[in-house]
Amino acid sequence: MSEQAKTSDSSVPRGILGSNALKSYLGAYGFMAPAGILVIVFFLIPVAIVLYLSVTNLASSNFTSDLAKMEFVGLKNYQTLLNDQFARKIFFNTIFYVLVTLSIFNVSLALIVSLLTTHIDRNAGFVFRALWILPRITSPVVYILIWKRMTAEAPFGIINQFNEAFGQPTYNYLATNPWVFVVVVNGFIGVSFGMIIFTSAIESIPKDLLNASLVDGSSKLQRIRYVIMPLIRWPLLFVVTYQTLSLLTSFVEIQLLTDGGPGLYRTEVWSLTAYHRALSNYFGNAQWGYGSAFAVLLVMIGVVLAVIYMRVFRFDELIAEPRVEAL
């Protein structure tokens, strides 16, 4: 269309056309600027800094006010990392933590909660969803304190008080079953995100479609399987992708609950290691350069996963044509 306008209107001098094109580009960049600046300031620049730090030996032990004195060490930090006897354990801890939390809580339970709460009375559904949001809106420190009180040893812990009341043996849960609680504590927070996305997706399915399925002879379960699930495919894939990445980088709750313990790195995950190495070393020796190497690897894993997800799930296609609305 614009092509036609250009050729048919030959009286317009080229110079003006050129400046118009420039203007239209300026407009486009102008609109992209706010998001672009955010990405640059809060992602690209930090990544560049961390990338740089990861090839230096900057640490609290050799830190002086003269930053120019920090030493370039090439890939030494990465070499150390690969030879670290615990890196492997931490890596598989991370995969275990992300996979289990994601599949049980952030996706499955979120889906179950949103399906259940959209199939009951609207107000009741709202109340249940509000309850599920509580873990997310509670400050992590308070939230973890609650869990610590619940799981504490007898006679203090609430769960152990029940155990005692019913004549059961008591446990020091965070020492005996740390992974269960790391996953549950994070999972309870994780449910609300998917729940909100899935609920709004389910509620935006046209009522007629849902009624049509019942009239066509489906039970409510068959309707979920044949109509609702396919129609919320895009939000489902979005939640899987987004929550994978956010679980990979989350460590605050684990830090507060077990701080990677008990023992040596039993529940330590990659992002927590980066934090420990760089900012909270056991011996008061913050290895900024070495910790940055952990962070850089995490960013790389995240970017690679994001690209794989986008390719496999064909996000571009899903965004181009929102299936639910395209009736």
């Binding site: 046209p206 007629d208 479609l209 009624n211 049509a212 399925s213 019942l214 009239v215 066509d216 002879g217 489906s218 039970s219 044949y226 109509v227 396919p230 129609l231 495919r233 299936r323 639910v324 395209a326 009736l327």
Partner: peptide, 28 residues
């Protein structure tokens, strides 16, 4: 239940399942 009434219904919005082909819609 609606499924046990043996009724057919036509909606103003057509209410076709957007993720199914025409064949799958009619065969549903």
């Amino acid at each position: 239940q609606p499924k046990d009434r043996n009724i057919g219904m036509v909606f103003q919005s057509y209410a076709l399942y957007p993720h199914m082909t025409v064949f799958q819609n009619i065969a549903y």
